[in-house]
Design a protein around this nucleic acid. Structure first.
Lengths: 358, 358
DNA sequence: TTGTATGCGTTATCAG
DNA sequence: CTGATAACGCATACAA
């Protein structure tokens, strides 16, 4: 009995999915058959049309449309070990500040045909770690993280898997990979110095608290510390009764105002760590007929749209939210493209905006 | 020469990735080897721990940790033809309304270990179609779309690929698959009837416009039509000079107020199609010393946080944003789970909230 | 410019 | 409860 050449096609025993089941999506092969080419040519026509003859491309396009073929990124990712998926993690999307960064980031990445996996950490490092793990399971081409403080496991995973990563909204001396933001401490410092220059003496500070279990975070802490340093550098002592905190919303801003003025009527200015709280306080002043800035000056942080609408317009710190997102995208794209000479830490700066509330 | 049994492992010619290249992520096989089991057992231990012996599971967990193994969803998706990825498309994330729906949706889906692909359409059907195609390429397990008006190709793709889909923020008589929302027309109708009941006669309406090229959308149109119908049903004629429109932001709300009152000083109430514009108008009234609601009453739409903070508090329509997102998630989960008896259209209702601005 | 052979890392299926 | 085998649908490497 003559030995046969090794069987090349081990006759598919068609075990899977050949019965009823859900309608199976079309494959490259079917498009190829209809267009009279090989699957790899279809693959090429879809990913890089230029390298396929125009006439061939036309037949393929027709077949694709007729069959209603939709690419399978999962199969592609497996074969190429590449994805066009980016993971971004923010503490919340209910804060327009984060939404604005996501927006800036999204626009730029979208132009380059990347898709965005959105993760919301609710200010929890534990949740963040789970999200990072999930995104890595998707083999995300890159990751964007909020802030510069992350769990050790997050850092380990990202480093060991060598995933391009950008941390935003802060400046880190030891970024996981890349970092784009501004110094929250310097920004708050600048505002307090500004208030001192305007002649205010008793300057209170209100820290916004967030999360389901109310707490602050690295950015908020940095702002408070910047404020304290400014007071010291201005020769003013630190008076703990001039510090308050509250949930990051309008009502808590109003409450903080009332609480502070209640126990320290000599307060001349209040610096809120967030525009929303400052706006809440401003409206409370209006209700009570307290003159701003004559009875008490009010400053915010963030320069949200509110700031120019409230009466009087709010003095605040403008942070580069949209620009941060955009820059993060640009850096990430460079990094994914293999450029190793991108700057590790990018300082986007900030501006103190003097308006009528101080 | 004795015939050998058929070679099972056709000696991998190790063509790919065996040289330098980036650090290759660990595979199931390596974990399996270290734990002394087969890869499929590791796979099972990771996906469904209960069906693996506790002792085995322990060894596997150890190996996973030591190696730093991270699952590969792409390979898993290919093999199982399933993903835990959901695509959600909203017109923008800068509007807290959409952010709130996403939030409600995200929380519920997150609990069930789904990941979210975020798409922003910028109110464009063309962009929406591209996003749907991308999400289908990811083989998303389900899709969430804003509104009930979509391009024909979107409907075709989703139907032919039989992807569980929920349209939210509207009620459709012919949903692509499922639909959860409320009637914008009825909601606006209810508000205008309410204003009429309060005794207002000349009631203006302001339509918010959105997108990079300013335009309205099905939801905004429905609100305006609801308002018109309410006027007709109240025996009032339609006076086109009582209609205005403007970009959806504070300033445009203020502008619309000024414009309307300028040309029609007899206006008694203005119904804004969005709270943000209404709040802008309210603040403008304050600046100008116009009494609200005595000189002019103001109503909004959406019941955003602002509504209770502005002075006077804003009469508005409360829409079930968070609940819509949550319900959409629940429906989608049922649908993905194979439940075919879920309701196709879910009406979440709305509430007219009477406050001090009317 | 197009095609052939092969592997990507996992899971469904069936057998034990 | 665990394992052997065969897909899953596509893209890389190389050849033509």
């Amino acid at each position: 009995m003559a030995s046969k050449p090794p069987t090349r096609k081990p006759l598919r025993k068609r075990k899977r999915g050949d019965e009823a089941g859900p309608p199976r999506a079309a494959r490259l092969e079917e498009v190829a058959r209809m267009a009279g080419v090989s699957p790899i040519t279809v693959s090429r026509a879809l990913r890089n049309p230029d390298i396929v003859a125009e006439e061939t491309r036309g037949r393929i396009a027709q077949a694709v449309k007729k069959i209603g073929y939709v690419r399978n990124f999962n199969a592609g990712a497996l074969a190429s070990r590449k994805t066009t998926t980016i993971g971004i993690i923010v503490p919340t999307i209910m804060d327009v500040g984060f939404a604005e960064v996501v927006h800036g980031f999204y626009d730029t990445m979208g132009e380059h045909n990347y898709q965005l996996l959105l993760g919301v950490s609710d200010y929890s490092e534990e949740v963040e770690e789970r999200l990072v793990r999930d995104f890595l399971a998707h083999r995300a081409a890159g990751l964007i993280l909020t802030g510069v403080s992350h769990g050790p496991e997050v850092r380990r995973m990202l480093t060991s898997m060598a995933v391009p990563t950008v941390e935003f909204w802060g400046l880190s001396r030891t970024p996981i990979d890349l970092c784009v933001g501004y110094s929250n401490a310097d920004a708050a410092y600048a505002m307090t110095r500004h208030l001192v220059r305007l002649g205010y003496k008793k300057i209170a500070f209100v820290s916004p608290l967030i999360g389901t279990v109310m707490r602050d975070n690295d950015r908020t802490r940095d702002r408070r510390e910047g404020h304290r340093k400014a007071l010291r550098d201005s020769g003013q002592g630190i008076d703990e009764s001039l510090f308050a905190s509250g949930r990051l919303d309008f009502q808590s801003g109003a409450n903080a105002l009332v609480e502070l003025m209640g126990k320290r009527p000599d307060i001349e200015a209040i610096f809120f760590g967030n525009d929303v709280m400052a706006a809440g306080a401003l409206m409370e002043c209006q209700k009570r007929g307290w003159a701003v800035p004559d009875k008490v000056a009010i400053a915010g942080f963030g320069d949200s749209e509110l700031a120019t609408v409230v009466q009087p317009a709010l003095t605040t710190v403008r942070t580069p939210r949209h620009a941060m997102g955009k820059r993060a995208a640009e850096l990430l794209l460079e990094r994914i493209g293999g450029n190793t000479k991108v700057p590790k830490v990018v300082d986007m700066g900030f501006d103190v905006i003097q308006r009528d509330s101080t």
